[in-house]
């Protein structure tokens, strides 16, 4: 579980996140949606400790993340763009992360088969396509059995078959009571995967509730239309 209280993040004079209060619960997939520049990635990076908070607190599984790094043992993260040292192979990166996490409890065989990665893991990253790197990122995010999974635009670079496998994987993890957080511009994916939606605009949460309640509220059957309406309504007239 992730609890965020009064989170504020400024870059210089620009306020990117304003007074964010939200809880991401176990066993649920929460989608953070919003237009470009609304603060989605900054919110995720705040949870990961990649950006330092200007104010407020973040707790992961009941413990404050301030000045801590061990909490990231319980997080699997898949970044928006996957870029790795170009002369290393997937296997080398995986064993590096394995030794950082001091973990023997990992399961990458199934994921490697699903994404057909066995041969690709032997090649240096400079010879791999963007999609394959994205699959390796998926592997890294899921292989260490983390309690919390954070996915930043996960399906953007995946082919339809991998994307479909990926969604099955997310739903399976949800069954295992994981806390899953994802951002995406693809509303079909969000509708398929998510239980809850956090709608961010200009660094503020404008809506937080279940996907169902948003659809009912906006009287729509498609999430894309409901979110589009939310976006246009929230913008200054």
């Amino acid at each position: 579980m992730i609890t965020i209280k009064n989170l504020q993040k400024n870059f210089g004079k620009v306020s990117v996140l304003k007074n964010i209060n939200v809880t991401f619960e176990e066993g649920k997939v929460t989608a953070v949606v919003g237009p470009n520049g609304s603060g989605k990635t900054t919110l995720i990076k705040s949870i990961l400790g990649l950006v330092k908070l200007s104010a407020g607190t973040i707790e992961v599984n009941g413990k404050s993340i301030a000045d801590d790094f061990a909490y990231r043992n319980s997080i699997g993260y898949m970044p928006q763009t996957a870029r790795y040292p170009e002369n290393l192979t997937g296997n080398e990166i995986l064993s590096l992360i394995r030794s950082i996490r001091h973990l023997n409890d990992y399961d990458d065989d199934e994921l490697m088969k699903i994404f057909n990665l066995e041969k690709e893991m032997e090649k240096p990253f400079k010879n791999l396509s963007g999609g394959t790197k994205q699959k390796i990122s998926t592997l890294i995010a899921f292989a260490f059995n983390p309690k919390i999974i954070i996915l930043d635009e996960p399906t953007a670079g995946l082919d339809p078959v991998s994307s479909s496998y990926f969604k099955d994987l997310v739903l399976k993890q949800k069954e295992l009571k994981k806390t899953i957080l994802l951002t995406s511009h693809l509303m079909n994916d969000v509708q398929e995967l998510s239980d809850e939606i956090v709608f961010l605009l200009d660094g503020e949460i404008k809506f937080h509730g279940s996907v169902q309640s948003l659809l009912e509220d906006k009287n729509e059957t498609k999430l894309e239309r409901a979110v589009a309406e939310l976006m246009t309504r929230s913008l200054p007239q």
Binding site: G49, L50, R72, N73, Y77, P79, A82, R83, Y84, S137
Partner: peptide
């Protein structure tokens, strides 16, 4: 500069800066 995304990825792991 080319390692920036990799640094981000590593910092999302349990490692101190």
């Amino acid at each position: 500069y080319n390692s920036r995304e990799f640094i981000e990825m590593m910092l999302s792991q349990p490692i101190d800066r």
